Computed example of a mutant assay.
Amino acid sequence: MHQIGLLFGSFNPIHVGHLALANFAMEYAPFDQIWFVVSPHNPFKDRKALAPAQSRLEMVAIATKEEPRFKICDLEFSLPTPSYTINTLQKLKESYPDNHFSMIIGSDNLLNIDRWHDSHRLLKEHSILVYPRPGFPLENADITHSKTVKVLKAPVLEISSTLIREGISEGKQLRFLVPSGVYDYIKNNRLYNST
Rank of each mutant, 00 (worst) to 15 (best):
S10C: 11
D118A: 08
Q33F: 12
V149K: 03
S169R: 12
E66T: 15
R115H: 14
R47W: 01
A63Q: 05
F101N: 02
K48A: 13
I186R: 01
F8E: 00
S95M: 15
Y192Q: 09
V37K: 07
S169Y: 00
L110H: 02
A53I: 04
P80D: 09
A22R: 05
L157W: 10
S83T: 15
S39R: 05
I113R: 04
F77C: 14
D114F: 09
P155L: 12
L7R: 07
I4V: 15
N109W: 00
P68L: 08
H126G: 09
I62H: 03
R165D: 01
R165L: 08
E67Y: 14
P13D: 02
W116R: 04
E166H: 13
R121H: 10
N23Q: 11
K71I: 13
S10L: 01
D114R: 09
G9K: 01
E170H: 13
P132K: 00
E27V: 02
K147F: 13
S102Q: 11
F77K: 07
R175N: 12
Q33M: 09
F70K: 01
Y183S: 07
Y84I: 06
Y192D: 03
S107R: 05
T148F: 07
L123G: 07
E58L: 07
T81F: 03
S10Y: 00
H41G: 06
N193M: 13
I159C: 08
I14V: 15
A154K: 03
I159Y: 02
Q3T: 14
I86Q: 13
P137A: 10
S10V: 00
H117Y: 15
R190D: 02
Y84N: 04
S194G: 06
K91V: 13
E94I: 15
E158I: 11
K48T: 15
R56W: 04
N23G: 05
I34W: 01
L6N: 03
P82Y: 07
R115I: 08
M103L: 11
L50V: 09
D108L: 05
H145Q: 14
L177M: 13
L89E: 13
K187P: 06
F31T: 00
N99T: 04
S194A: 15
Y131M: 07
T85V: 13
D98W: 03
I113V: 13
L174A: 04
T88N: 10
H145N: 11
Q33Y: 11
F36S: 00
S10H: 00
N23V: 04
H15I: 00
I4M: 06
D46P: 05
P68D: 09
K48G: 12
E27M: 02
D142Y: 12
G5L: 03
L174W: 10
M1G: 06
L191W: 11
S194M: 09
Y84S: 09
S107N: 08
E170S: 14
N140G: 03
V149Y: 08
N99R: 14
F77I: 15
K150P: 01
S127F: 02
F44K: 05
Q3A: 12
F101S: 05
S161G: 15
Y185R: 04
D108T: 06
L89M: 15
E27H: 11
A49N: 11
H126W: 10
Y185D: 08
L89T: 07
D98M: 06
G171R: 10
